[in-house]
Simulated assay, not measured.
Amino acid sequence: METLYWSIIAILFIIGFVGLIYPIIPSVLFIAGGILLYGLFFSFEPFSRLFWAVQVLFVILLFLADYAANLAAVKKFGGSKAGVWGSTIGLIAGPFVIPIFGIIIGPFLGAILAELLFNRKNIKTAAIIGFGSVVGFVSSVITKGIIQGFMIAYFFIAIL
């Protein structure tokens, strides 16, 4: 039974990392779910108040990293709030509309369309902003992957 429990926990952690590429998957919930299932399957005893405080801090950092990276990159490349929203919508819709490549093309096209429609930017400027949205997405994925890695590493440190 122990192998089954560990398999379920590992699957949840893996789905958490898949959520980095498919933002529709709430990755942090799967990682937290794996930690909670460990407690239910085995014991909550290894998890101190400090452990939970650090994990909550990591969750907050995940949300901030996601928002800040996209916002900073779009703004740095000359985009507006409309560009950020367009990029976000494209990020969510892209993988469904264009499988595999939609994760990159979606935010790019979303930012371009938003800037063209709402801010009347020229196509060249809008394309630069679209590129910025892709830069923001990639930097967000890297940052969130590192934070999620720390969450899981701290989990293993706590249980060992």
Results as ranks from 00 to 15, higher is better:
residue 79 G to P: 13
residue 143 T to D: 09
residue 100 I to N: 09
residue 104 I to M: 12
residue 32 A to F: 15
residue 41 F to N: 01
residue 49 R to E: 12
residue 139 S to K: 13
residue 153 A to Q: 06
residue 74 V to A: 06
residue 148 Q to L: 11
residue 96 F to W: 14
residue 16 G to E: 05
residue 11 I to N: 04
residue 153 A to M: 09
residue 88 T to Q: 10
residue 65 A to S: 14
residue 50 L to Q: 03
residue 147 I to P: 07
residue 153 A to I: 10
residue 153 A to G: 09
residue 8 I to T: 06
residue 134 V to D: 05
residue 101 F to R: 04
residue 139 S to Q: 11
residue 62 L to K: 01
residue 133 S to M: 05
residue 51 F to H: 11
residue 156 F to M: 08
residue 115 E to H: 02
residue 158 A to I: 13
residue 12 L to I: 05
residue 38 Y to Q: 08
residue 120 R to D: 15
residue 14 I to R: 00
residue 139 S to D: 02
residue 155 F to E: 14
residue 50 L to E: 08
residue 46 P to A: 07
residue 84 V to Q: 06
residue 81 K to N: 14
residue 44 F to Y: 15
residue 86 G to R: 07
residue 160 L to K: 11
residue 30 F to D: 01
residue 55 Q to V: 03
residue 69 A to S: 15
residue 120 R to E: 15
residue 67 Y to W: 15
residue 118 F to L: 09
residue 16 G to S: 05
residue 23 P to M: 07
residue 104 I to R: 11
residue 53 A to C: 00
residue 54 V to G: 00
residue 10 A to N: 09
residue 4 L to R: 09
residue 81 K to P: 07
residue 26 P to V: 06
residue 52 W to L: 06
residue 137 F to R: 11
residue 83 G to E: 01
residue 121 K to T: 13
residue 88 T to Y: 15
residue 96 F to T: 02
residue 92 I to Q: 06
residue 123 I to A: 10
residue 154 Y to R: 01
residue 160 L to N: 13
residue 75 K to D: 00
residue 94 G to P: 11
residue 19 G to C: 06
residue 6 W to L: 13
residue 19 G to F: 14
